[in-house]
Simulated assay, not measured.
Amino acid sequence: MQPANKTIVVTGAGSGIGRELTLQLLRKGANVAGVDINQNALSETQQLAGVGDERFKGYVLDITDQARVENFPTEVITHFGAVDGLINNAGIIQPFKPVNELTFDQINRVMQVNFYGTVYLTKAFLPHFLQRPEAHIVNVSSMGGFIPFPGQTLYGAAKAAVKIFTEGLHAELADTAVRVTVVHPGAIATNITANSGLPGPKVDPNAASSKMALSASKAADIIIRAMEKNKYRVTVGKDATLLDILYRLSPKRASRFIGKMMKKTLSKM
């Protein structure tokens, strides 16, 4: 789907990849409904966008609030007249701890934001998309959604759920005008640690090495091009692409490799 003259909802629009997606979509002629839990962050995105409410409107929304999300499409359609796309980008990581040391509150929060937030928004907008001439759903999973990262096991499980959910949607919607893409980013230079409410340095849980981190701007460009080309699946970053190949060849060897690299990374935190 080409973004020009389309209205696209972007979650996590206040920072990182979400902000870059917003800015790049606006430059391509799209209207954007930007979603974030942080009003100040949305205001910063609005200032950077340099456009009025008719092109970009920020919505403070907790995507884990099912009742609010169910009513959200009405707000967007009332303002923009229609909605054509959804990029479920918002996500958080877990504390850098093994499963045995996580509380159920921590586990539930990671699952609620990363998986159920994606499901809630998709369910809310899908009936409207099915009425459009064309529409597109982009769900951001993770490199951690297809290969395990010790110390981020629940994060990976949530993103793996997003992967299968998205692939199932693709199959279910194959005979409709709604296209679906799943995205697997590798290490991206964002402040996801701080945005997840966690202390410590800005370490992306997907990174075997911070030197592999891709800029948020480049990641957004790859994601938008995948939407434009109606791709089924896209890896973002050399690390994601290489580990995808390695995991297909030998899941056990790939998992051991990541385990060793994560131990080195976590020991420096």
Rank of each mutant, 00 (worst) to 15 (best):
T78A: 12
Q152M: 05
L154S: 06
A157C: 12
P73A: 07
D175S: 00
P133W: 12
K229C: 05
F72D: 08
K238D: 01
N5S: 13
L130V: 00
I192Q: 06
A240N: 06
K260A: 11
L61V: 13
L130E: 11
I37M: 09
A174T: 03
S250R: 09
F257E: 01
K260S: 12
I93R: 09
V69W: 04
S210R: 12
L126S: 05
K252Y: 06
N31C: 07
G117F: 01
P133C: 11
A157E: 02
L249N: 06
I164W: 10
Q66Y: 14
A226V: 14
V110R: 00
A161V: 06
P127N: 07
A216K: 05
V138W: 03
V113I: 13
M111G: 00
A213C: 00
S267W: 00
G197T: 11
Q47I: 09
T241Y: 08
A220G: 13
H170E: 11
T153G: 08
F257S: 04
V178F: 04
T103C: 05
S15M: 02
P148K: 14
K264A: 13
G81Y: 07
L198V: 08
K97M: 07
N114W: 03
N114Y: 01
I8E: 14
M1Y: 09
S215T: 15
K263Q: 15
L25H: 02
V113E: 03
G151Y: 08
H79K: 06
L266P: 01
A177T: 15
G186C: 10
H170K: 15
L121V: 07
S141W: 01
R225E: 15
I92K: 11
K252M: 13
I137K: 01
V32L: 10
L26F: 01
N89W: 05
T235Q: 10
A157M: 12
F257C: 00
K264Q: 12
V10Q: 15
S43Y: 02
Y59W: 14
N230A: 11
T235F: 08
A41V: 02
D62C: 10
F80G: 01
T265W: 04
T22E: 05
P185K: 06
Y120P: 03
I92N: 04
K231L: 15
S43I: 07
S267C: 08
I223P: 05
A187Y: 05
T22H: 01
A171C: 06
S217A: 10
S43P: 02
N191I: 01
I87C: 12
G259V: 08
A158D: 02
D84T: 03
L102W: 13
K123E: 11
Q152K: 04
G237W: 05
V51T: 07
M262W: 03
T181L: 06
Q47S: 14
R253W: 13
R225K: 13
S142T: 04
E167F: 11
A220S: 05
P95Q: 04
V110H: 04
L173K: 06
R27T: 03
E44K: 08
A177N: 15
L246K: 15
K28N: 03
V51H: 07
F104Y: 09
G151S: 12
S250Q: 00
E228G: 00
H79T: 03
V236W: 00
L154E: 01
G50V: 01
P95A: 09
N195Y: 04
N195S: 02
G156S: 03
I93Q: 13
